[in-house]
Design a protein around this nucleic acid. Structure first.
Lengths: 133, 133
DNA sequence: TAATTAAGGATTTTATTTATCTATAATAAC
DNA sequence: GTTATTATAGATAAATAAAATCCTTAATTA
């Protein structure tokens, strides 16, 4: 079980946009170069973030991606869910009634993780540190 | 990102053994039947638990698998690590120095989840409830 | 010795993730 | 309007990982 590379790319892109945050959109070309990933692949990932309403895309010359107004509120969990979906991490495949005790414990644990990810926002990160980007 | 089915099988097998817990070993045949999984596949999973020291196997007629003495202490996390390995869930693949702020946050979150899984033991589960197995 | 049961190696199947290629659409600059 | 630039989208390929099967070996009991 691993977070996907796509999530890694998405998180780093959001951090970059949050740290840079000019009105001027940033092209996928530049974002991809920095992360050493192909632009087409990264663009597919960013399109998911657009659909989730976290960033907007501007097409045409000098276009690219830019944060939307609510950017201060975007949490790690938001980003992760936008990329990986928000299905739970564990499905009991054994049929002992509707509530499996194992499932319950694992889901409680998952909720602890999500709580932390929900409380951490990209903007916190930028505020907390001198960006090393 | 999902926990593997193998982990699901391992957890359920451990719950079963903990609930049943006679000295008499339980054959993989029976365990596999209950979970509707092939015996050979399940046996590979259980071999990992043997190597991790949680259960022991008895070969030959009337053989099977049986908990080891420390069974009261076996946590969810122990079992999950035995099956999935204990590598962390996230690897930053971007090279901005040794400590990536994103990695740090995700790992903190993971630690929250692991803490819960470390504190929950199979024996708790058996104690807490009337087994519905 | 025969029957039973786990371990282990090799391999196959299936699913998921990662990545590429190509075409289309929108926009800005000229 | 034409051209250059940039995102979107579909189809597909390649790589990796997970799930499962098959077959052989080894250990043990009756």
């Amino acid at each position: 079980m691993k977070f996907s590379k796509a999530t890694d790319y998405a998180l780093h892109t959001m951090l970059f946009l949050t740290a840079a945050t000019p009105d001027k959109p940033v092209g996928v070309q530049l974002l991809a170069e920095k992360q050493k990933v192909s632009p087409t692949y990264l663009s597919k990932i960013l399109t998911k973030l657009v659909k989730a309403g976290m960033i907007e895309s501007i097409t045409g010359v000098n276009g690219g991606y830019r944060l939307k107004r609510n950017w201060e509120d975007i949490s790690f969990l938001d980003i992760i869910h936008a990329i990986e979906g928000s299905a739970s991490l564990f499905d009991c495949s054994f049929d002992h009634g509707p509530d499996c005790p194992i499932q319950r414990v694992v889901l409680e644990a998952e909720e602890k993780m999500e709580e932390h990810l929900r409380n951490k926002k990209m903007s916190d990160l930028v505020r907390e540190m001198n960006i090393v980007f």
